[in-house]
Simulated assay, not measured.
Amino acid sequence: MKCWIWLGLALLASGAQALETGERLAPWTLSDQFEQAYTLDDDLRILLVARSMDAAKLLDAALEGQAKGYLEARQALFVADISRMPGLIGKLFAIPAMREYRYRVLLDREAQVVPQYAAPEQGVLWLQLERGVLRERRVFSDAAALRAALEQVAP
Rank of each mutant, 00 (worst) to 15 (best):
D81R: 03
G69N: 05
K2D: 04
G15C: 06
L25S: 15
P96C: 05
A37Q: 06
V49I: 07
K91Y: 10
Q17E: 13
A80L: 12
R138E: 04
Q122K: 13
G90Q: 08
K2N: 06
S52Y: 00
A13G: 11
D32N: 11
V114F: 00
P120K: 01
P155D: 06
Y70R: 04
L77A: 10
L47S: 01
A145R: 08
G132T: 04
P86N: 15
G123R: 03
R104P: 04
L11K: 07
A154D: 05
Q112V: 06
A119Y: 01
E35N: 13
I82P: 00
V114K: 00
Q152T: 15
G132K: 02
E23N: 03
K2G: 09
L48R: 01
E136W: 12
R51S: 03
T29K: 02
E151Q: 14
R147S: 13
E20L: 14
E136C: 08
L106K: 02
V114C: 00
M85L: 12
L146H: 00
G15P: 02
R99Q: 12
K57Y: 07
A76V: 09
V105P: 12
V139T: 09
Q122C: 09
R137E: 09
S141Q: 11
A145W: 08
F34K: 11
Y70N: 03
E130Q: 15
A18C: 03
A94N: 01
Q36I: 14
Q17M: 14
P96L: 04
E64K: 07
W126A: 00
A16W: 07
I5N: 10
L47F: 03
V124G: 03
V124I: 15
E20W: 10
T21I: 10
L30Q: 04
R104S: 12
I46H: 06
A37M: 11
L134T: 04
A145Y: 09
L58T: 03
P86S: 07
G8S: 11
K91W: 15
A118K: 07
A18F: 02
E121K: 11
Y117M: 07
Q116I: 12
G69T: 15
F93L: 13
L107Y: 05
L47Q: 03
M53I: 14
G22F: 01
Q17D: 04
C3S: 10
T21A: 09
I5Q: 14
Q152V: 03
E64V: 09
L9N: 06
A148T: 10
C3L: 11
R74I: 14
R102L: 09
A144H: 11
I89V: 15
A118S: 13
E136M: 12
E72I: 13
T39P: 07
M98K: 01
E72A: 06
L59P: 01
V49C: 01
D142T: 14
R138C: 02
P27L: 09
G8I: 08
A144Y: 06
M53A: 10
W4F: 13
F34P: 04
I89L: 08
F93G: 07
L77R: 08
L129Q: 14
